[in-house]
């Protein structure tokens, strides 16, 4: 029961993007389409789960004072792994996400969960927490990406449904801010 709660909280109640307002750089930066948002979200989920599990495993071996640097090295390793894997196996997606893959390392969500959850809980619940938070993040990014893609290029996951240019501003930088603003307002309403 508790684990189920740990898993689902990331989607609505403690959604990292809409409620906690963490990791906004990649949220705004890569969500020009739903597929980019999903890819970025899943990459972050991988790093979150990996670092959460490892941190929970080794938490007792790490002296308190070097806790944060150790966590950062662990996170950076997982980021590099996903970076290499994506470059090799999904080059097109890797290219459109670009700089934001290595930048997962400074995503506040990842370090935040390692520090706030994994360093205090068991391996299994840390895994669930990482998975829930990560998928919640992926959900938020996909949603924002879908909204921007539908309005901005009249297509969804690459399938065009109206064959003209969309409302361009939504795929440009300002559209990211506008889209996120209204989604946050909407989520606030739902949470009430």
């Amino acid at each position: 029961m508790n684990n189920l709660k740990n898993f689902t909280k990331g989607f609505i109640k403690e959604n990292p993007v809409f409620i906690l307002l963490l990791g906004l750089c990649p949220t705004l930066g890569v969500t020009t389409s739903a597929i980019n948002g999903l890819g970025m979200g899943l990459a972050t989920t991988f790093v979150l789960v990996g670092s959460n599990v490892v941190v929970a495993l080794v938490k007792k071996l790490i002296p308190d004072k070097v806790r944060i640097p150790s966590f950062i090295v662990i996170i950076a390793s997982f980021v590099t792994i996903i970076d290499l894997v994506m470059a090799g196996y999904v080059p097109a997606l890797y290219e459109s996400l670009g700089l934001f893959i290595p930048l997962i390392v400074v995503n506040c969500i990842v370090l935040g969960r390692a520090e706030a959850f994994a360093s205090k809980n068991t391996v299994f619940s840390s895994l669930i927490d990482g998975l829930g938070m990560g998928l919640g993040f992926a959900f938020a990014l996909t949603l924002l990406g879908a909204v921007r893609e539908i309005l901005g290029s009249y297509s969804i996951f690459g399938y065009k449904f109206i064959n003209t240019d969309g409302i361009l501003v939504f795929v440009l930088a300002p559209g990211a801010f506008f889209g996120l603003a209204y989604l946050i307002a909407l989520m606030k309403k739902i949470n009430k």
Partner: peptide, 15 residues
């Protein structure tokens, strides 16, 4: 298992 002390040796070794 007890948490490790933050001695200089431990910290360097861990990192």
């Amino acid at each position: 298992m007890a948490k490790k002390e933050s001695t200089f040796f431990n910290m360097t070794l861990t990192l």
